[in-house]
Amino acid sequence: MTAASRVITGITFTTDEAKGIFEVEASDGAHLLDLATRLKAAGFDHCLSVTAEDLGDRLAVLWHISSYTNRELSGMNAQIRLVVSKSDNVEVPTLTGIWESANFLERETYEMFGVVFKGHPDMRRLLLPDDFTGKWPMRKDFPLKKTPWRVQK
């Protein structure tokens, strides 16, 4: 793996250009907001994806961002990564205040991973039914087995 680093407005990205990875790691919530504000000012103007990775005892929350207007940045799918310890309801700050396009993406991450985005204007389920009883289907401890299901009339 040929990992290098690249610096944009004072922020150092871990870079692997062949694989399209440009990553910056946030240490905690305050740092995340600071990073996001600086990246927005640098020209990253929209959010492509918000998701998480189940790392066993921790969760890594990821924001993928890119740019429509800045020609230099629009070739990158930059990602901000914040690792938090895993619990039933993980709390991280929302970035909807900075990138409004993260709205639905954060709602999806909430219902799939149980990541509660503090300060999100509308933290509800998006894709699953309201009475879905299973907890956080995209986590690794949610098993995937065929079961004889019925629908209630």
Partner: peptide, 22 residues
């Protein structure tokens, strides 16, 4: 595939598809 991560973007008919594989 060897351990690693990758992203890809493609312009589909309705817009940009974004992939992130680990």
């Amino acid at each position: 595939p060897a351990a690693g991560r990758s992203t890809a973007s493609v312009e589909a008919g309705r817009g940009e598809i974004f992939f992130y594989l680990v």
